[in-house]
Design a protein around this nucleic acid. Sequence first.
DNA 1: TATTGACTTGGAGTTAACTCCAAGGAGTAT
DNA 2: ATACTCCTTGGAGTTAACTCCAAGTCAATA
Lengths: 131, 131
Amino acid sequence: MTIKEVCEKYNLTPDTLRYYERVGVIPEVHRTKGGNRDYNEEDISWVENAVCMRSAGVPVEMLIEYVKLYREGDGTIQARRDLLAEARAVVQENLDKYQATMDKLNYKISRYDEAIKTGVLSWGDCEDLKK
Amino acid sequence: MTIKEVCEKYNLTPDTLRYYERVGVIPEVHRTKGGNRDYNEEDISWVENAVCMRSAGVPVEMLIEYVKLYREGDGTIQARRDLLAEARAVVQENLDKYQATMDKLNYKISRYDEAIKTGVLSWGDCEDLKK
DNA sequence: TATTGACTTGGAGTTAACTCCAAGGAGTAT
DNA sequence: ATACTCCTTGGAGTTAACTCCAAGTCAATA
């Protein structure tokens, strides 16, 4: 699979994909004779993994560390598990914050809708910030 | 309330708080005779709102726009509602991605725990990336 | 009155994560 | 063989969101 195809599949730019490889977010990708990247199934799994983790705010630095441990072999199983647990904590924390903000936004929007429907601004200065 | 107290309350730095005010993430804060910031209840509501929204990835640019509309008065009610709805869409999208990543992380970690417990690496190269 | 410590400003610097660019190589179409 | 398109690299540039700094002000204490 060419770099372009992988980009289309995951909605990335070639520059991003090359950047991920260069800094070690994914391991080195298989090449054609001519030196062009030719992603095999395993390469694509790594890309998919990176995209998923990045989309949830797991830092690039953490992914680099994971790949590094992975390449060091079976002796790093425990370390890898711990790193994943750390990533999970990051994601969970964000998840909680995001949920709290959703609640607040829903509340605020419903109050605006009420005001728009009735034509009455039933709250004072800055009141829309509350709750 | 001094800038320092507000910082402690919301775990921010004074620089961040001044930055928020300078670019318009929050409206201008009340001052003492000497020119020092003296946050009143309304100012603090704005700070709290900014912290909440930022923690859920709502861009600074969007908050600036909201404050701008707010200061323009009641004629911007509909525009503010729409902006909030836009922010909600941003947060919801992230929420979904984060949840998907949590599921994946939980699965991966459980597989690692299994491998650690049994001492057997029951999966092949890169297999831990799957699912 | 002199010093201390927290505050002020405008502006420059930093960080993470890309994103762009110039120069050049490989493979295919004419 | 020439052109065209897509790829390559190393390195520089960009963006969002802070973060730091120098120089100065103000109020309270020694």
